[in-house]
């Protein structure tokens, strides 16, 4: 039982930190521009595919560096030539624009790379077990994933709180007009933040691609979960996004690892139902079975009882 718990925690950490890389960019973009970027997970997918193509020619490490850069440039271009134009038509138009963009990116990926699963491999140098516990290996690559995510978190936090640019960004979040009056180029800051946010998503894609398989559906699987995290954490709050990412990662991991379900609860209560009871599906439900929908349940509950999210302090 102990080994299940330890590994569930590790797995939860890996997933949670990966989700944070996506959520951090999304929450930054939201807090600055008020745009919930539906295509954010699509940039994550683009990162994986670019890295795959680069790794075929030049190996994994160059892909790790260049794929996020390409994705970041693409993201900045989307902001400059797409979002900025749509901005005039209001928030709904912006949301719908990113929604359409997500759709288009998925189709474009199928057009350029085809619908098959891509054979994107982790580098050989990380192809060894980091440690073996109770007969189960924890691969070095997963350790590497944790390392990269933690570095990103620390780096992002330092930049935002300690550096001059970070202070300007924070000011632009709350008082964009004042910042503009002080002579800063706010549209440029917006473009930069959007580029960095999407580059972070791209980086997440680069390191997740070899483990979570690179295929055209990888954005959809992750897309709505990232929203859930940003909303649960509180829109615009980086710390909230961090906590919510880990919370969701661990919650799902523990739920899958557990073996409990409605039958146990009914046994405990001493109730039993016939197999042909109309609600039989409910009485036989198990926690691992519903693990993937737990984040959405949490989302709805949080929004009903605490619409600002865990750490958020504003609603719009």
């Amino acid at each position: 039982m102990l080994e299940v718990f330890i590994f569930a925690t590790l797995n939860g950490l890996v997933t949670g930190l990966l989700l944070f890389m996506l959520a951090s960019g999304l929450t930054l973009i939201f807090s600055m521009m008020g745009v919930l970027n539906f295509a954010h997970a699509s940039f994550y997918m683009l990162g994986a595919y670019f890295a795959y193509s680069i790794s075929l020619q030049f190996g994994f490490w160059l892909g790790l560096i260049f794929a996020p850069l390409i994705v970041g440039c693409l993201g900045a271009a989307v902001e400059r030539y797409g979002l900025r134009r749509v901005h005039e038509s209001g928030h709904v138009a912006e949301l719908v624009f990113t929604f359409g963009l997500a759709f288009l990116i998925e189709e474009a990926i199928q057009f350029f790379w085809g619908p098959d699963t891509k054979n994107y491999q982790s580098p050989d140098i990380l192809d060894f077990p980091l440690f073996t516990l109770f007969g189960q290996e924890f691969s070095a690559y997963r350790g590497f994933m944790i390392g990269v995510s933690v570095l990103i978190f620390i780096g992002l936090f330092r930049v935002l709180t300690r550096s001059r640019i970070g202070i300007i960004i924070q000011a632009a979040i709350t008082h964009p007009n004042t910042v503009a009056n002080l002579g800063h180029n706010v549209p440029l800051i917006f473009m930069g933040v959007f580029g960095v946010g999407t580059a972070l998503a791209g980086l997440a894609g680069v390191i997740a691609g070899p483990v979570l398989t690179t295929f055209p559906g990888m954005a959809i699987v992750l897309g709505s979960i990232v929203f859930v995290i940003v909303v649960i954490g509180g829109l615009g709050s980086l710390a909230g996004a961090f906590i919510a990412s880990l919370l969701i990662g661990l919650l799902q991991s523990y739920a899958i690892a557990s073996d409990v379900g409605m039958p146990d609860l009914l046994n405990f209560l001493g109730v039993s139902f016939e197999r042909d009871h109309p609600l039989n599906d409910l009485w036989t439900m198990t926690l691992p079975q519903i693990a993937p929908i737990l984040p959405f349940l949490l989302l709805v509950l949080v929004l009903i009882f605490r619409p600002t999210g865990l750490m958020g302090n504003r609603e719009e």
């Binding site: 709505s224 929908i293 989302l299 709805v300 609603e315 719009e316």
Partner: peptide, 16 residues
């Protein structure tokens, strides 16, 4: 609420 809160609840309910 309208706005983002409503949009997100509808997304969550839809997925659920």
């Amino acid at each position: 609420k309208a706005g983002t809160v409503f949009a997100m609840i509808s997304l969550g309910i839809g997925e659920l």
